[in-house]
Write a protein that binds this DNA or RNA. Sequence first.
RNA 1: GGCCCCUUCGUCUAUCGGUUAGGACAGCAGAUUUUCAUUCUGCAGAGAGGGGUUCGAUUCCCCUAGGGGCUACCA
Length: 501
Amino acid sequence: MAYRLRFAPSPTGALHIGGIRTALYNYLLAKQKGGRFILRIEDTDQSRYVPGAEEYILRSLAWLGIHPDEGPGIGGDFGPYRQSERLDLYREYVMKLVEEGKAYYAWDTPEELDARRQQSEDHSFRYDASIRNEMNNSLRHSAEVTAQRLQEDVPYTIRLKVEPGQSIVVTDKVRGEVVFDSSSLDDKVLFKSDGYPTYHLANVVDDHLMKITDVIRGEEWLPSTAHHVLLYRAFGWEESMPAFSPLPLILKPNGNGKLSKRDGQKFGFPVFPLAWPSDNPEQAIEGFDSYGFEPEAVVNFLALLGWNPGTEQEIFSLKELVQTFDPEKIHKAGARFDFDKALWFNQQYVHQLRYDTVAERLEQEGAALGYDLSAGDMEGAFRLLQPRVQLVKEIMPQAKYFFSEDFEMDEESIEKKWKPELSGVLEDVATALASVEPFTFEAAGAKAKEIILASGVKMGLVMPMLRAALTGTMQGPDVFAIAEVLGKDITIARIRKLAKR
RNA sequence: GGCCCCUUCGUCUAUCGGUUAGGACAGCAGAUUUUCAUUCUGCAGAGAGGGGUUCGAUUCCCCUAGGGGCUACCA
């Protein structure tokens, strides 16, 4: 049978990395099996709907290179892919359950239910077989009363009638068998009074109708999977029920609870793929993109958070992940988010980057910093700075001396190490460099060292000053490598300038 | 409170009864770099506790503890 997997987010805001990882795993298995990856928007809660969220989800997946085969705006044979556009379907299916006595109407209002919960000691109120006959529903009332209320459009919900005393075995690929007792399950609301289905109904109906074969989703769904199995059973679809793989949760770095959307701000790292700007700075959120991460690194990092192939390989392209992924190797315990590790992954990718793939970004960043990019060799600067950074965006802020004579001089350090005799040596080095042709870093370095040695002034004194002359700082790439990129004329001019101080 | 899940170095993890318990990040030390970073080498660092099962348990079972999830007309 053809593999069909889906990612089914709710458009309630930006999607955090837990959701991204879920999408990724579904995508990986689908592609590995030559199947299809489907995006379904679960917008059944009108009150939590956030405009722009769906578009954000699409953009995020695209940024990461995860392209759905079917979905809203993409098409496919099983649409529509937005649950709000499938309302008639859910009604039709839930009515079958009602007709067969597997579900029932309930007129209890949210207020009444809240009151019951308040009254009950330690959260013991549960809408189930033990109390449903005293509640306000079609099980307690006569068929006539039910008919009349329906006639009068009294708002109702539809609940699943869970028969107590049966054991429900949920079999999944990461934990094996988990057994639930139906007596501990409540009569879940399937259909809300606003005409929308709840997650449970919509999810089961759609997974069935869309012929989903495997469901990889967060572990928070494990308890309700028991209800879902009951639903498949009620519909008579148990034979074709998808295989489940619960994903361990991504935990806060300090280990207290699952990673939440607010944690990014709290701990100082991104928890969203893409930044979501807002007019209100309080609400604007950062993303891995705005932190300067490469999407490939984010994918790699997330893929290995809670899963690994059992080998010691850590760097995987999306393609390699597709080949290697195995849901049975998903780790069982929750994984703490480790930003340092994320940075390390990014560094691995940054060090492999080819100049032409980042030239445009560097140009924009340089321009934003006010550099005159035509005044220097950007590719040379990139080549020298690339191995020294974890994020591409760290490059341009430390590259000013490649493009300008107006870079800051670390006067304090220069002052501390300055000796009067340096003037002469620097001048001699500058003069000698003029004859170096071609002006490569090897040749320039050899010539400069020759002059310094002959001068009798300590190498350890001159070299830092040469560096200061060229860059203004006491740290950075190899001095002569910088000199080569700057070119002979600029190198000589800067050395002479410092010599004359 | 009830139901369910989980538990190996600080962190992410390997191990599918027999290993000096391996790797990566972070940490520390050294080498290279006459700088800093990179890179390389090395060091340190773990089976929550208690019972079983077994010739032998990190691995299987039970209990305890700890952590997590769910417990909505939210997903």
